[in-house]
């Protein structure tokens, strides 16, 4: 056996509630991120990502309280992201019990933040999320939730992120996100060949075969998805049985 490929559901949280709808018939509190996280954990999700999409100060406090509850109630690793702009934010999240933090726009605005997180808390804590879009074969990085283009190229930025001490890269292809026709396997494989840190693939999951392909062709270490899990289109236990039959090492 070998290190298992990880399946990671991502939960968007606004004012303490999960945003995307859920289709869990037996779940009374699907809007509560902690209850939803627990349900995923029971289905053998390997890790969870909680993204705070609240902007307000009050919302941040609610999110921090939620992180504490997740840490108290769940026994699998979890990453938190959204609104992390400086070292103090990282400290708050780790003290609340998060295992890792994910930074995106803040890293592109201030790349030194990656070095600081790695130096103060260790590389294993630092996940750098990259949103990028391909136009005529050129992959360009975006910030502010994919609204603002930057002059950075995906592959150059990924290499810099690794050199600065990131522990993992979470790459979302904006071309594939929401389309449900599979992940950006070519770009992912190029990242995997280039980097020596794990790559989490995001954007494009629609059916179980997409997960097989992202591990086999995209050489990803982990795959992240939101809506296919939230709407119950793919069950995590069912997905993992399928991947195992396809010869992919997963935790059953």
């Amino acid at each position: 056996m070998s290190l298992a490929k990880r399946i990671i559901p991502c939960l968007d949280v606004k004012d303490g509630q999960t945003v995307k709808g859920t289709n869990f018939v037996n779940l009374r509190y699907a809007g509560d991120p902690v209850e939803l996280g627990k349900a995923y954990s029971e289905q053998n999700a390997d890790e969870l990502v909680f993204l705070d999409i609240t902007a307000s100060y009050e919302g941040r406090k609610t999110f921090t309280n939620m992180v504490q509850r997740v840490a108290a109630e769940l026994s699998i690793p979890f990453t938190v992201g959204g609104g992390i702009n400086e070292l103090a934010d990282v400290d708050t999240m780790l003290n609340a019990g998060a295992d890792k933090v994910s930074i995106n726009s803040a890293a592109l605005r201030n790349p030194q933040l990656i070095n600081e997180i790695a130096c103060h808390f260790g590389s294993q804590v630092c996940v750098v999320a990259i949103d990028a879009k391909e136009t005529d074969g050129h992959w360009q990085c975006y910030i502010n939730g994919g609204r603002v283009p930057t002059d950075r190229n995906l592959f150059d930025w990924a290499r810099e992120v690794e050199q600065r001490g990131a522990g993992e890269i979470l790459f979302t292809s904006m071309n594939h996100d929401g389309v449900k026709h599979g992940f950006a396997n070519e770009a992912l494989a190029r990242l995997a060949d280039m980097l020596s840190i794990p790559v989490i693939a995001s954007g494009g999951a629609g059916k179980m075969e997409d997960f097989r392909d992202v591990f086999k062709q995209g050489k990803a270490d982990a795959a992240l998805a939101a809506s296919v899990f939230h709407y119950g289109e793919i069950g995590i236990s069912q997905l993992k049985s399928y991947l195992s039959q396809e010869g992919i090492s997963v935790r059953l």
Binding site: M1, L3, D46, Q124, D221
Partner: peptide, 8 residues
Amino acid sequence: KIPHMGWN
């Protein structure tokens, strides 16, 4: 990859 990180 190093660290050995994940489920084994």
